[in-house]
Amino acid sequence: MTARRYDTTRRQAAAQERRTRVAEVAAALFAERGWVGTTVAAVAAEAGVSTELVTKAFDGKPGLFMAAFRQASFGGSTDLPGVFAELRLEDEPDLDVRLDRLVDFACASLVPMAPLVPVMTAGAEHDADLRRLVRAAELGHAETAREVVRLLAPGPVGDDVVDEVYVLTLAETYLAFVQQRGWSTERYAAWLRRSLRAVLDSG
């Protein structure tokens, strides 16, 4: 019985390692080749697994892309609120320290995520399943924006503040500054901190 439980645990760990490997490979290929140029078969070949395994494990190309997106930005977690909760902002009494943690978290997520954002936009135009997954991700981002306001606003705020935080922390906003305007990540981080502080303080 003990050996059987051990073997099951080992198989589960090996399966998770394969999933992580496939997601990492997929993130690199999607960033390099785009939505149309990246196939499930190509990801499987690069990762050294079967196409059938990838299709079954990720429920097709849309699910594979979202797994790659999460792997690049949140270490593979499907629980953005849970990842955000790990910042333990509620345990920190200093609002400025909370804001610093948030900005560091945003930048750490956005830098690896950014190359996949245009791929996601292009893919959503072609695939209804990906559009649904993107919509779910947008709703998750909105929930996180509400949590940011709850944890960082020094007092009551107006209805627009959540939407402003939502836009400030979008990957598309990061890309506009860094890719289109040539900002460094450090310059973007300083801007984000100033902008969030201004919005949250304005109420």
Results as ranks from 00 to 15, higher is better:
65 F>D: 01
66 M>P: 01
66 M>S: 02
68 A>H: 04
68 A>G: 02
68 A>K: 03
69 F>P: 00
70 R>P: 00
71 Q>T: 08
71 Q>E: 14
73 S>K: 07
73 S>G: 14
73 S>D: 05
74 F>Q: 13
74 F>H: 13
75 G>E: 03
75 G>K: 05
76 G>I: 01
76 G>A: 02
76 G>R: 07
77 S>N: 05
77 S>D: 08
78 T>R: 15
79 D>I: 03
79 D>R: 09
81 P>M: 11
81 P>L: 12
82 G>E: 05
83 V>S: 10
84 F>I: 04
85 A>K: 13
86 E>I: 00
87 L>D: 04
87 L>N: 05
88 R>V: 01
89 L>K: 08
90 E>I: 04
91 D>M: 12
91 D>N: 10
91 D>K: 12
92 E>V: 13
93 P>I: 04
93 P>Y: 07
94 D>A: 10
95 L>W: 06
96 D>N: 11
97 V>G: 02
97 V>R: 15
99 L>M: 10
99 L>I: 04
100 D>H: 09
101 R>K: 15
102 L>D: 01
102 L>C: 02
103 V>P: 00
103 V>C: 03
104 D>Q: 14
104 D>S: 13
104 D>Y: 05
105 F>Y: 12
105 F>T: 00
105 F>G: 01
106 A>D: 11
106 A>Y: 09
106 A>S: 12
107 C>P: 00
107 C>T: 11
107 C>K: 10
108 A>Y: 05
108 A>L: 09
110 L>M: 14
110 L>N: 06
111 V>Q: 14
112 P>R: 08
112 P>F: 09
113 M>P: 00
113 M>S: 08
113 M>T: 06
113 M>I: 05
115 P>Y: 10
115 P>H: 11
115 P>W: 10
115 P>E: 06
115 P>F: 08
116 L>T: 00
117 V>Q: 15
117 V>P: 01
117 V>G: 02
117 V>E: 15
117 V>A: 13
117 V>M: 15
118 P>T: 06
119 V>W: 06
120 M>H: 02
121 T>I: 14
121 T>D: 13
122 A>H: 12
122 A>T: 09
122 A>G: 12
122 A>I: 01
123 G>P: 00
123 G>H: 06
124 A>K: 08
124 A>W: 03
125 E>M: 12
125 E>S: 10
126 H>C: 11
126 H>S: 13
127 D>Y: 08
129 D>K: 15
129 D>T: 14
130 L>K: 01
131 R>M: 07
132 R>Q: 12
132 R>N: 08
132 R>G: 07
133 L>A: 13
134 V>T: 12
134 V>L: 14
135 R>F: 08
137 A>L: 09
138 E>V: 11
138 E>G: 12
139 L>F: 11
139 L>T: 07
140 G>Q: 11
140 G>P: 01
141 H>R: 11
141 H>A: 12
142 A>S: 11
142 A>C: 02
142 A>M: 12
143 E>M: 11
143 E>P: 00
145 A>M: 02
145 A>Q: 06
145 A>V: 02
145 A>W: 03
146 R>W: 10
147 E>M: 11
147 E>F: 07
148 V>A: 02
148 V>C: 03
148 V>N: 02
148 V>R: 08
149 V>P: 01
149 V>A: 14
149 V>M: 07
149 V>G: 03
150 R>A: 13
150 R>E: 10
150 R>N: 02
150 R>W: 06
